[in-house]
């Protein structure tokens, strides 16, 4: 279980997270939503160790991880993707996949190659295996990032806007892929603006607004919550 207690993150005078407490159980598929600038990305960055929370604690199965560096947190089984992709542009797609695998050394060389081929096939990137990642479109980079996480066996996947820039046809496939991952036991925290997708595939929604948690519950309840509608300026995004 991943448990955040009173997590605060300040950037100078700006408070991006103002005391967020939330729990994510193993195997859950949670949507993390909220208007722009509400602190979703910051929350993922605190969990993944890129930012150190200004206050509060983050525990994985009772173990404090908020002081660990990002590589240590990754090795605890928490993988993430980025809203603005961080693929290694000058490396090939395959090399991009090998890097996370090599840091953990779960797999031998052939195992690694097999896993890479499987993942590329699942994400429809197999034609581009040898291409440098800079040749990928924005959407393909998002897919590659998910592939990079899946090279190991993470327990938690933190996905930051994975549908952004992804072609509509691929988007459906990506939804299916994420559902399959969930069925295979992965815990997923999905940040997304795509309300229709979020409501369709998540079993629980957590809503942030201005750095604070507004609601937390099953999608149909959250949809009906007046505070959520307000947070989204009269339900502009609501499905």
């Amino acid at each position: 279980m991943l448990e955040l207690k009173n997590v605060v993150k300040n950037f100078g005078g700006l408070q991006a997270l103002s005391g967020v407490s939330v729990r994510f159980a193993m195997g859950e598929f949670v949507g993390l939503i909220g208007p722009n600038g509400s602190g979703k990305t910051t929350l993922l960055s605190c969990i993944s160790g890129l930012y150190r929370p200004s206050e509060g604690s983050i525990q994985l199965d009772g173990r404090e991880i908020s002081r660990l560096g990002p590589h240590r947190i990754y090795r605890c089984g928490i993988g993430r993707t980025f809203q603005i992709s961080k693929v290694f542009a000058r490396l090939t797609v395959l090399q991009n996949l090998y890097i996370p695998a090599m840091t953990v050394a779960e797999l031998d060389r052939t195992g690694m190659q097999q896993r890479a081929v499987e993942i590329l096939r699942a994400l429809k990137l197999d034609q581009l295996a040898e291409a440098p990642a800079e040749r990928l479109s924005g959407g393909q980079r998002k897919l590659l990032e998910i592939g990079m996480v899946m090279m190991n066996t993470p327990r938690f996947l933190l996905l930051d806007e994975p549908f952004g820039g992804v072609h509509p046809v691929l988007k459906n496939q990506l939804e299916e892929y994420l559902k399959d991952l969930h069925l295979s036991g992965k815990s997923i925290i999905l940040v997304s603006h795509e309300m229709s997708s979020v409501f369709r595939i998540c079993e629980r929604l957590v809503v942030l607004d201005r750095g604070a948690l507004v609601t937390d519950g099953p999608p149909h309840e959250v949809r009906a919550d007046q505070r959520v509608v307000n947070a989204y300026l009269g339900g502009k995004h609501a499905a």
Partner: peptide
């Protein structure tokens, strides 16, 4: 950061 969050 990309490298660090992939375990490097």
């Amino acid at each position: 950061d990309g490298a660090a969050t992939r375990g490097v």
